[in-house]
Design a protein around this nucleic acid. Structure first.
Length: 484
RNA sequence: GGGGCUAUAGUGUAGCUUGGUAUCACUCCGGGUUUGGGGCCUGGCGACCGGGGUUCGAAUCCUCGUAGCCCCA
């Protein structure tokens, strides 16, 4: 923002930039002003404020319900991982070393500890002790915890922070088949969280060798595309095969009494999801909370006139009781004008606003305003509950459809590298054929800053095409984009 | 790794060249008035990144440190 504008624009409450004009600035303002998060004294570490944590809580609650259905148990393992554990699986250690933070006590001559960047190693040490028989399998454990990845690159609230919250599921199976099926099942759970709870469309697919998790044989992901043309990996599910089981000496006696090596997967989603909500649904007025994830689905604002003040507040509170199932904010404060409150709840993204004024009371109605479309409707009180239920669902659908339409329009299929470069330059996501060579993919990254996102389950077959970059026969078709 | 710039209240800033009780707006707190889209009037709280130096006197000059931003490789 130009310096002179800052004095002229004295409104520090509302969002001062348009989403389409300066998205990085817009994003930061929404996170701060909707009170989702705040900066901390430590670079890259953020404070998640109650409004932001409520979004996380909605994700946690829904996912815990899924875990229960899937017979996955919650548990907790230590924050610190002995260096020797961490290095036991070579590929894993190499992949994570650059971003690990270490702890070493001054008077301690023993080994230093890694602050967990992910918990495979500390968890599988325990698994090795616990698993003896085929009767111990499958073992399905999840933990909710914080993770530290001390990346120095530019940090961004929710999307890229040195510490974040996540869940990580770690399961062990008797057979490769069972392991693989469930790896895909948890990816489908992530699709449900993203699309059905948060109204954020995603593509499901397989990561390339270059982009897969260090230590996995295959990584699957859900990928979305943000309105600035940057892709966001929203969740991953890794087929670990038997690599960690070997390194951590996990074995069991099978039904025939023979020693056998089990199969493992791990999978995670994080507070990154919150950043995706902001970017995907927000507008120039601020945040829009997808209704199924909203703690307070409704804000009720009385239109107070001095002469009828008591009566209006009383009627407003009655409407609050009527709508109690939506956990409404009933804002009868006299210190703020109703116009001020309208802006406040729009900034904070409350899905629906219900206004109660003298004219409404007279007509036994309320005004209902949608956050996504701004559409205003006058609804009789006896139909209000049903109307709100229906409108919240309509909002979910509209948010999803709007995002899907935008994403579809921002994906271009290309066959030659010139078109590829232009599309990336135009902030598009590219769908194209590739040879599958690691070097070729790296070369594309160096030239365009785009990385491979995933080989989609639907449409990833190579056909007879050649690689967009090197003209060798294609191994698969996949998405490329610049990414968060 | 190299170079440059910056640090003043919760936020954004003026003052620094030329040393002399730190500016303005928003926020915040109080009072009044208002309330169908951030209204109006009024009173108030609140700051010179940290250490050292020069000086009668330092936000200002010097120095070290710390933090942030930008550019180059």
């Amino acid at each position: 923002m130009a310096k002179k504008d800052q004095n002229a624009d004295q409104d520090t409450k509302g969002i001062t930039v348009k989403k389409t004009e300066d998205m990085p600035e817009w994003y930061t303002q929404v996170c701060l002003k909707a009170e989702l998060a705040d900066y901390s004294p430590i670079k890259g570490c953020m404070v998640i404020r109650p409004n932001g944590f409520a979004l996380w809580q909605a994700i946690v609650d829904q996912f815990n319900a899924y875990l229960k259905e899937d017979k996955v148990q919650n548990a907790y393992f230590p924050l610190f991982i002995p260096e020797s554990f961490f290095k036991r699986e070579a590929e894993h250690a190499e992949g994570f070393t650059p971003e690990v933070a270490w702890v070493q006590n001054k008077d301690d001559k023993g080994e230093r500890f890694a602050i967990r960047p992910t918990s495979e190693t500390i968890m599988y040490d325990s698994y090795g002790k616990w698993i003896r028989s085929w009767r111990d399998l499958p073992l399905r454990i999840n933990q909710w915890c914080n993770i530290v990845r001390w990346e120095v690159q530019d940090v961004k609230l929710f999307l890229r922070s040195r510490e974040f919250l996540w869940q990580e599921g770690h399961c062990v199976y008797e057979t490769d088949k069972e392991c693989h099926e469930e790896t895909l099942h948890y990816l489908e759970r992530y699709r449900q969280i993203s699309e059905d709870l948060l109204a954020i469309p995603v593509t499901l697919g397989l990561k390339t060798e270059r982009e897969k998790f260090a230590g996995a044989i295959r990584t699957y992901s859900i990928e979305s595309l943000m309105p600035d043309g940057k892709a966001l990996q929203m969740g991953t599910s890794h087929d670990l095969s038997q690599g960690f089981a070997k390194s951590f000496e996990i074995s069991f006696q099978d039904k025939e009494g023979k020693h056998a090596r089990p199969w493992q997967n791990s999978w995670g989603i994080s507070t990154r999801m919150i950043g995706a909500i902001v970017l995907t649904h927000g507008d120039d007025k601020g945040l829009i909370i997808p209704p199924r994830a909203a703690l307070n689905k409704v804000a009720i604002v009385p239109i107070i006139f001095e002469d009828k003040k008591d009566m209006i507040i009383k009627e407003t509170e009655k409407v609050g009781e009527l709508l109690s199932e939506f956990n409404p904010i009933v804002d009868t404060r006299g210190d703020y004008t109703s116009g001020w409150k309208f802006n406040e709840y729009e900034l904070k993204g409350i899905p629906l606003r219900v206004e109660v004024g003298p004219k409404d009371i007279e007509k036994k109605q309320a005004v209902v305003v949608r956050r996504d479309t701004g559409k205003k409707e006058f609804i009789p009180l006896d139909k209000l509950k049903q109307h709100i239920t229906d409108t919240l669902e309509a909002m979910h659908k509209n948010l999803y459809d709007t995002a899907k339409k935008r994403i579809d329009a921002d994906i271009v299929t290309v066959k030659d590298f010139k078109a590829f470069e232009k599309a990336i330059e135009d902030k598009k996501m590219v769908f194209t054929a590739h040879c599958g060579e690691d070097d070729c993919e790296l070369c594309i990254k160096e030239k365009t800053a785009a990385t491979s996102r995933c080989i989609p389950f639907k449409g990833g077959e190579p056909g007879s095409e050649t690689c967009v970059h090197c003209d060798k026969p294609a191994k698969y078709k996949l998405y490329f984009a610049r990414a968060y």
